[in-house]
Design a protein around this nucleic acid. Structure first.
Length: 424
RNA sequence: GGAUAGUUGGCAGAGUGGUCGAAUGCGGUAGUCUUGAAAACUAUUGUACCGCAAGGUACCGGGGGUUCGAAUCCCUCACUGUCCGCCA
């Protein structure tokens, strides 16, 4: 959510920059400013009535004490009138406040000026390519065939037990999965992140805090009996740890990492994109969250991208780095870099990480502030990034490392798996 | 799941219808004293919003109600403690 004060101050810039994401915000922003004016006006009106009412109530007390019954009763009559006025004024103010809030929720984050214009993922800017794309050999198979061949992932039994998109990992597949989680967490720890194991379900306030609610309600599994949501990413519990907090500037930066399963309904997804491990309803992910001083957040964003690149290099996977265009940019993000690995047998780039700077957009909803050098309260900047999402890494590892003997495990992972090849 | 007691400012803790934004203690900040520190003493010290300002409004777990007036009375929800039951 954008800060109202900022909208008042930078109306034109905001409208202009929102165009980068093909968002015509002119009408909405104008409307917000009108509602803001109405709200303030009605608030002043209400407060005026409340002030008189408060004063009157006090005087009634003293009048009774002094035994001036008549005057007291007269004042009571006036108080009754005021009460009616106050009720109406309050309703008017609340109506404006509600409309204002709803309108503010509709405004996406203002893109960073470096965000390229564009409509879809086709317009994302490829910043770099790293690693060597392997040559596809005749016997190479996509990962869902390999999963069957080596009996390491069972999609069918997942359908029986739960439904499509909930695979079972078995034997070496399960161990490889666990090895990746540990590898990622160890890497994060070596880089100064504190490991967290958060709850996998969150309440509504947390969903609102990080921006999944109210917009993307349909993307999350909702346990309605208890009104809790299954997390689609560890970003929600990790960032919400600091909801409504005022941290000291010396507490910054806050660097958190956490492994969680992620649950996504993925309503509306279809086609070859959802084949095998490409898109699941439940998947594992290690997430990084940073809470930063506003002056540092863009340097930190670059640092996080480098960090993810470094892990991909260690896994010996060919990858490319993209700067998301305005049309593909998430609602809450000001700037996002995606990292995609090349999965050879499918001949596809698979997104395995998304690293974003939200600036104050989440912090404003979270009411997450810090005391700056001058003891003023300021909103922090929040960032997060996947490091990494497991299934597509697994897909690429399986597809790219096929040999006649079996699937080779990259050297960096062998200490974690305890084996260097997957074979029958 | 049943019973019961709670939820007040950074913390502890008073406050059962009016002068309570809230005693008191601790803590914090500033000062006096001191070579310095501690102790002692003095003063000060909640948050948010509206307003150019003066000032005003709201907030005693959340929401609603009674009343001219609610931290205080009523309803409701959430959370916490304790006991019982169940349980990894």
């Amino acid at each position: 959510m954008l800060e109202l004060a900022r909208i008042r101050k930078e109306k034109e810039t905001i409208i202009e920059r929102l165009k980068l994401r093909n968002f015509d915000g002119k009408e909405l922003i104008e409307n917000i400013l009108v509602l803001d004016g109405n709200w303030r006006e009605s608030k002043q009106e209400l407060e005026k009535i409340a002030a008189e009412s408060n004063q009157l109530a006090k005087s009634i007390g003293s009048l009774f004490k002094e035994g001036k019954q008549d005057e007291a009763n007269k004042a009571k009559a006036r108080a009754g009138e005021l009460k009616e006025l106050e009720k109406n004024a309050k309703e008017a103010m609340n109506a404006y406040a509600e409309k204002l809030q709803a309108a503010l929720y509709e405004v996406p984050n203002v893109p960073n000026p470096s965000v390229p214009a564009g409509n879809s993922d086709e317009d994302n800017e490829v910043l770099s390519n790293s690693g060597t794309i392997p040559t596809k050999l005749d016997f190479w198979q996509p990962h869902w065939e390999l999963a069957k061949k080596y009996d390491i992932i069972d999609f069918e039994v997942g359908v029986k037990v739960t439904g499509a998109g909930f695979p079972f990992y078995k034997g070496q597949g399960a161990r490889l999965q666990r090895a990746l989680i540990n590898f990622f967490l160890d890497q994060a720890r070596d880089n100064g992140y504190t490991e967290i194991i958060p709850p996998f379900v969150v309440n509504e306030a947390s969903g609102i805090g990080t921006g999944q609610l109210p917009d993307k309600e349909g993307q999350m599994y909702h346990a309605t009996i208890d009104d809790l949501y299954l997390i689609p990413t560890a970003e929600i519990p990790l960032t919400n740890m600091y909801r409504n907090e005022l941290v000291k500037s010396t507490d910054l930066p806050i660097k958190l990492t956490g492994y969680t399963p992620c649950f996504r309904r993925e309503a509306g997804s279809y086609g070859s994109d959802v084949r095998g491990l490409n898109r699941l309803h439940q998947f594992d992910k290690v997430e990084l969250v940073r809470i930063e001083h506003p002056d540092n957040s863009y340097a930190v964003l670059d640092e996080m991208v480098k960090y993810v690149q470094d892990i991909l290099t260690k896994l010996e996977l060919p990858y490319r780095t993209l700067r998301l265009c305005g049309g593909d940019l998430g609602f809450t993000s000001a700037l996002t870099f995606d990292l995609e690995v090349y999965s050879a047998a499918q001949d596809k780039w698979l997104e395995v990480s998304s690293v974003s700077n939200f600036e104050t957009f989440q912090a404003n909803r979270l009411k997450l502030r810090f005391k700056d050098e001058n003891n003023n309260k300021q909103l922090v900047h929040t960032l997060n990034g996947s490091a990494l999402a497991l299934p597509r890494i697994l897909a690429a590892l399986l597809e790219n490392n096929q040999t006649e003997e079996g699937i080779k495990i990259p050297a960096a992972l062998v200490p974690y798996t305890g084996f260097d090849i997957i074979k029958n």
